[in-house]
Simulated scan of single mutants.
Amino acid sequence: MQKVFLLLSILVSLSGCTSEKKEKKINIQTENTIVIEDPINKNKVKDTITKTKIIVKKETIDYVLNSTRNKKVEEKTKDDTPRNEETKEKVVVKEIEKIKSDHTIWNLLTKKYVSTTGKVNYKGFKANIAQIETYLLHLQNIAPQKDWTKNEKLAYWFNLYNASTIHLVASTYPVKSIKDINNGKPWDKKFIKSGSEIYSLNEIENTIVRPNFNEPRLHVAFNCAAVSCPKLLNEAFTPTKLNSQLSKLSSAWINDPSKNKVTENDLEISKIFDWYGVDFKKGIIPFINQYTDTKVNDSIKIKYLEYNWDLND
């Protein structure tokens, strides 16, 4: 943001020099207030999200490039290849702001419609499905870039997956199970947009995240909208909190006797460990022992619990 204010200051000071310069303007716009409705209590909670959009006119871009001595801008525009106007515009806009995804809307919605135990109020989500769509459109337009950190990318994919899952269920609610959608194959439905690509839930999990991030805790982050699934986090994943969020969810999942029954000499655990055992590279029991107070013997025989696909509402 310091770069933004520096460039704005330069432009404002230069624009006051001549009448011609006064015509060079920067437009600043703010987004609207978000209203989240509660279908049960019939009240409304307003949460205002204000983000500054800086729209730089072409004349201003030319003026900046020709009239300032900002070394960072000059360094990015100096090379042996002639630059067209479109390229110049991209250079200046990139100098102004590095765009990242904003998970505020999803954070507000999950805090309101997901309990601390992971129960999901799909009726509430359905009443505010337009807000989910606004958030999904934002994620579509702000797809991960190469210069994003690992945590920025993971937070993006986890939130995109979960918001898309909730949208899929809420748009057809009431249903008994997510498997009642798309002929029993909801995870194969291609409907999730990110940049210019369209993905299914399976593709996000199995072709993007699992092969590329070496993170076994992803299985507590992706929510399948079922009773036996690890609980849905009642806040958005964020890059700065991601590690603590994943550890907290892992501990809650491992120590939930309805999902994993762990004793020193007896182990009945989620089918997730059976389906995705290859992701736990240090071993399933060592992973469990990270999060349980009761340490399990390494030689114990593992049994898997039946998976309950009823909706987590």
Results as ranks from 00 to 15, higher is better:
Ser177Arg: 09
Lys179Arg: 09
Lys179Ser: 05
Asp180Glu: 12
Asp180Gly: 04
Asp180Val: 09
Ile181Ala: 14
Ile181Gly: 09
Asn183Gly: 03
Asn183Ile: 01
Trp187Glu: 02
Asp188Ser: 01
Lys189Asp: 07
Lys189Phe: 08
Lys190Glu: 14
Lys193Phe: 08
Lys193Pro: 02
Ser194Ile: 07
Gly195Asn: 05
Gly195Lys: 07
Ser196Phe: 08
Ser196Tyr: 10
Ile198Val: 13
Ile198Met: 10
Ile198Asn: 05
Tyr199Trp: 05
Ser200Val: 03
Ser200Thr: 00
Leu201Met: 11
Asn202Ile: 00
Asn202Asp: 00
Asn202Glu: 01
Asn202Arg: 03
Glu203Lys: 00
Asn206Tyr: 02
Asn206Trp: 00
Ile208Gln: 04
Arg210Leu: 02
Arg210Tyr: 01
Asn212Ile: 09
Glu215Ser: 11
Glu215Asn: 14
Pro216Val: 03
Arg217Glu: 12
Arg217Ile: 06
Arg217Pro: 01
Leu218Tyr: 02
Phe222Ala: 13
Asn223His: 15
Ala225Glu: 06
Ser228Ile: 03
Ser228Pro: 09
Ser228Asn: 10
Cys229Gly: 10
Lys231Met: 09
Lys231Ile: 08
Lys231Gln: 14
Lys231Thr: 10
Leu232Pro: 08
Leu233Asp: 06
Asn234Glu: 02
Ala236Cys: 06
Ala236Pro: 12
Thr238Met: 03
Thr238Ile: 06
Thr240His: 02
Lys241Cys: 07
Lys241Arg: 15
Leu242Tyr: 13
Leu242Gln: 13
Leu242Ile: 12
Ser244Asn: 15
Ser244Asp: 15
Ser247Val: 14
Leu249Trp: 08
Trp253Ala: 04
Ile254Lys: 05
Asn255Pro: 07
Asn255Glu: 07
Pro257Cys: 01
Ser258Leu: 10
Ser258Gln: 15
Lys259Pro: 02
Lys259Val: 11
Lys261Thr: 15
Val262Trp: 10
